[in-house]
């Protein structure tokens, strides 16, 4: 795949070339491409004068960076303590089952959905919650989650 490296350079220039801006650069690049392709990381390393291994090292340390392309809708199921004690796992199981996904295979083949867990969204008062592309859905149940996915598929909900 070809990437618009000029656009990547613009992002780097906007953030500043110093090594301290690496995380911000990666965040902004990911916001654009939805993931961090190897070629792009290599380019960033060269432009910012950081070793490629370091860029890879930082990118793999943080949960939010993805080395693989994610689906159009990223569903994050909160499994923080509050959500966990209010039964978040059955929701996760249901959602994965519906989309035929697993921990190892988080993204559907049609690149529509990615399912992840997140340790806490800080919306504990509404537990259990999930988010779709950062939109929070409170007090979920497996049934509600099923409906939600159906609604997204049918275009009834915008996220």
């Amino acid at each position: 795949m070809e990437f618009d490296l000029k656009r990547i350079d613009e992002i780097i220039d906007a953030c500043g070339c110093e090594a301290k801006n690496l995380i911000t650069v990666l965040q902004n690049v990911q916001a654009e491409l939805r993931y961090l392709p190897n070629e792009v990381m290599e380019h960033i390393a060269k432009r910012m004068d950081i070793s490629v291994a370091k860029v890879f090292s930082v990118a793999t340390f943080y949960e939010n960076f993805s080395l693989n392309a994610k689906g159009e809708y990223v569903i994050k199921i909160c499994d923080g303590t509050a959500c966990h004690v209010r039964k978040s796992i059955p929701i996760l199981t249901k959602v994965r089952e519906l989309l035929e996904l697993s921990e190892e295979k988080p993204t559907t083949d049609d690149m529509m959905f990615t399912v992840e867990t997140v340790s806490c969204l800080g919306a504990c008062g509404l537990a259990p919650v999930l988010t779709v592309n950062d939109k929070v859905f409170p007090a979920m149940t497996p049934e509600k989650a099923e409906q939600l996915i159906q609604d997204i598929k049918e275009g009834k909900i915008e996220c």
């Binding site: 499994d79 923080g80 303590t81 509050a82 959500c83 966990h84 340790s119 806490c120 800080g122 919306a123 504990c124 008062g125």
Partner: peptide
Amino acid sequence: DEGDPGAF
């Protein structure tokens, strides 16, 4: 970076 689950 309030990361503790259950704290907000």
